[in-house]
Computed example of a mutant assay.
Amino acid sequence: MALRVTFVATARSSERPAERFGDDRPLDQAGWDEVRRAGGGLLPLAAAELRYCSPTPRSRATGDALGFAPLVQLALRDCDMGRWRGLTLGEAMAREPEAVDAWLADPRATPHGGESLLAFIGRVGGWLDTRPREDGCRIVAVAEPSVIRAALVYALKAPASTYWNIDVRPLSTITVTGHAGRWNLRFDGPFEASHASSGVWAQPTRA
């Protein structure tokens, strides 16, 4: 029985989306302007039978502004970055360069005292695999870019390092179809193409 799950990336809360680990700031004016501009194109997604969002303020606000009235899902929370929460990558490097190197190199590493990248991907994937199995059911989830990246790595059964090579822009969309253990990436045409973003986000390196 095939499900259709469309992820919508949250609108921005700063000029550089997801700039800080565990960023939970609300939408800024630029974010609200983005939602207004994209609202018409994303409106059809409000017809999904199930509508969810990450627990961050900007995810909830994005979903509400788009008319989704989403249900918060704790499993779609951002990766727990432990004592690095609230820091930029550069700030974490300045404080603990060796720990950051270990974290970037090993998806099982937890030098920050939080959650490993591998555990994060598994948690998000577990949420995806446990969606109600009703054939043809449409699901929409407004989520943080990091959560969407984790979902794609899981759905495609890609190496964890692939996470660093996925770029998710504000209010972009991506759809996966299938069921637990078998997911396919889907591109449907003009609607998705007009809002989806593709690209490569290179793994950060120390200066």
Rank of each mutant, 00 (worst) to 15 (best):
residue 10 T to K: 06
residue 81 M to T: 13
residue 67 G to W: 08
residue 98 E to N: 11
residue 73 Q to G: 01
residue 107 P to I: 09
residue 6 T to W: 02
residue 10 T to Q: 14
residue 28 D to P: 07
residue 57 P to N: 07
residue 178 G to K: 03
residue 45 L to D: 02
residue 178 G to W: 02
residue 96 E to W: 13
residue 86 G to M: 07
residue 133 R to T: 07
residue 131 R to F: 00
residue 35 V to K: 06
residue 161 S to W: 01
residue 165 N to D: 08
residue 159 P to H: 04
residue 62 T to H: 11
residue 91 E to C: 11
residue 136 G to P: 10
residue 143 A to L: 07
residue 86 G to F: 05
residue 3 L to H: 01
residue 42 L to K: 03
residue 153 V to Q: 03
residue 113 G to W: 05
residue 198 S to D: 06
residue 178 G to T: 03
residue 58 R to M: 05
residue 34 E to H: 01
residue 70 P to G: 10
residue 156 L to Y: 04
residue 115 E to Y: 06
residue 122 G to F: 00
residue 189 G to R: 05
residue 134 E to N: 02
residue 179 H to A: 14
residue 84 W to Q: 12
residue 90 G to W: 03
residue 20 R to V: 06
residue 61 A to P: 10
residue 137 C to F: 00
residue 157 K to F: 00
residue 21 F to R: 07
residue 116 S to I: 05
residue 196 A to C: 13
residue 6 T to K: 07
residue 156 L to K: 09
residue 48 A to D: 06
residue 108 R to M: 10
residue 81 M to L: 15
residue 22 G to N: 14
residue 46 A to Q: 06
residue 197 S to Y: 08
residue 69 A to E: 14
residue 170 P to F: 04
residue 182 R to D: 15
residue 155 A to R: 02
residue 8 V to D: 03
residue 135 D to R: 13
residue 40 G to E: 14
residue 66 L to S: 03
residue 66 L to D: 01
residue 106 D to E: 06
residue 201 W to V: 04
residue 203 Q to T: 11
residue 10 T to H: 15
residue 68 F to K: 00
residue 124 V to T: 04
residue 55 P to Y: 01
residue 83 R to L: 02
residue 167 D to E: 13
residue 204 P to N: 13
residue 92 A to R: 12
residue 77 R to E: 15
residue 182 R to H: 14
residue 164 W to L: 11
residue 206 R to C: 03
residue 35 V to L: 13
residue 180 A to V: 04
residue 52 Y to I: 08
residue 83 R to G: 04
residue 178 G to Y: 06
residue 106 D to S: 07
residue 173 T to Q: 04
residue 86 G to D: 08
residue 77 R to A: 15
residue 163 Y to N: 06
residue 118 L to C: 03
residue 121 I to K: 06
residue 148 I to K: 09
residue 52 Y to L: 15
residue 17 P to E: 12
residue 6 T to C: 12
residue 102 A to M: 04
residue 71 L to P: 00
residue 49 E to R: 14
residue 36 R to M: 09
residue 185 L to N: 04
residue 103 W to I: 04
residue 187 F to G: 03
residue 33 D to F: 05
residue 145 P to L: 12
residue 37 R to C: 01
residue 134 E to V: 15
residue 111 P to T: 05
residue 46 A to C: 00
residue 2 A to D: 12
residue 71 L to I: 11
residue 181 G to R: 07
residue 129 D to S: 10
residue 97 P to I: 07
residue 8 V to W: 03
residue 150 A to C: 10
residue 151 A to M: 03
residue 113 G to K: 10
residue 4 R to N: 12
residue 151 A to K: 04
residue 23 D to E: 15
residue 51 R to Q: 08
residue 139 I to V: 15
residue 206 R to D: 06
residue 192 E to R: 09
residue 190 P to Q: 11
residue 133 R to V: 12
residue 179 H to K: 10
residue 192 E to N: 02
